[in-house]
Amino acid sequence: MPPADSDTEDTLDLRLPPDFLALLGIPGESESRAPGPVAGPPAAHSTALVGRIADWAAAGTCAGAFRLVPAHADRDLALVSHWMNDPAVAAFWELAGEPSLTRRHIAAQTFGDGRSVPCLGLLDGRAMSYWEIYRADLDPLARHYPARPQDIGIHLLIGGGTDRGRGLGGTLIRAVADLILQHRPACTRVVAEPDIRNTASVAAFLGAGFRLSAEFPLPGKRAALMVRDRALRRVL
């Protein structure tokens, strides 16, 4: 789970070449920035690199129906900021503080070039987690491991304390990984890079069918590279 001043911020600052964006039908830098105050839904082009997550159906799990819904910087600010100020979350996300800090973090993705999509996780219609689905192969993370084209990465946090410590993390991570592999046929692997000190997170990924592939330093943490292979999807 990323410190705010390292992995996610690096992801947002990395610029794709204009010719590459043009091939994907994505506006260039001057066109893609939303003018004025950040409000409302993301721009239409922001689904090109990760997919139209808003259209993904709910996944059935043993805990209930789980769905990802793209987050809005204004609409969801109070809830996500509240979660970010929980000490258990803040220790790894480093977004505790004024709501404006969380707002900027979400808005930068919502109105960026589409490489990272912030989402709420709804369990039986109840918002209880926050997720970021991102193109790992276009992220600075790709400098630290042998990335493949179309690798998709995930960051997450479980919001309420009552939802932690009862195995939900592994169940939901497996559901999200399955959704990604279902809707992104060119993706052969889903990856994550939790802090190696976050043993609960690492255990949840292992329980969801990921393997620990490597460890390496990232700004603010030592990361555990977790990998879920499409080829092993029906086995693990």
Rank of each mutant, 00 (worst) to 15 (best):
A175S: 05
A200R: 13
A108T: 13
D10P: 02
S32T: 14
G125S: 01
A39Q: 13
A44Y: 05
G153H: 02
T11M: 14
L181C: 02
D229A: 15
P17I: 05
I173G: 10
R230I: 04
I152V: 15
A58K: 01
D74F: 01
A43T: 13
H144P: 07
D86L: 12
T171Y: 00
C62Y: 02
L232Y: 01
G36M: 11
R15S: 11
R174A: 15
N198H: 12
A208K: 01
P149G: 10
R67F: 00
A59R: 01
D7H: 10
F92Q: 07
R52E: 15
A63S: 02
P27C: 10
A4S: 11
R211L: 07
S100R: 12
S81F: 05
R75T: 07
A192N: 10
A73L: 06
L172S: 00
G161R: 04
G209Q: 09
F66I: 10
A223L: 05
L225V: 11
E31S: 09
W131Q: 07
A224Q: 05
P185A: 11
D10H: 10
F205C: 06
G159R: 03
A73C: 15
L14H: 14
T199P: 02
S129C: 02
N85I: 06
D74A: 08
L101M: 09
P3Y: 09
G60D: 15
P118T: 11
M84W: 01
D19N: 14
F92V: 08
S32Y: 10
D124C: 04
M84A: 06
G167E: 08
D19Y: 09
A48Q: 11
A223F: 04
A59V: 00
V176K: 02
S46F: 07
P3C: 05
N198I: 02
P194C: 07
G167Q: 05
E29T: 15
R228W: 00
G160M: 03
D139W: 02
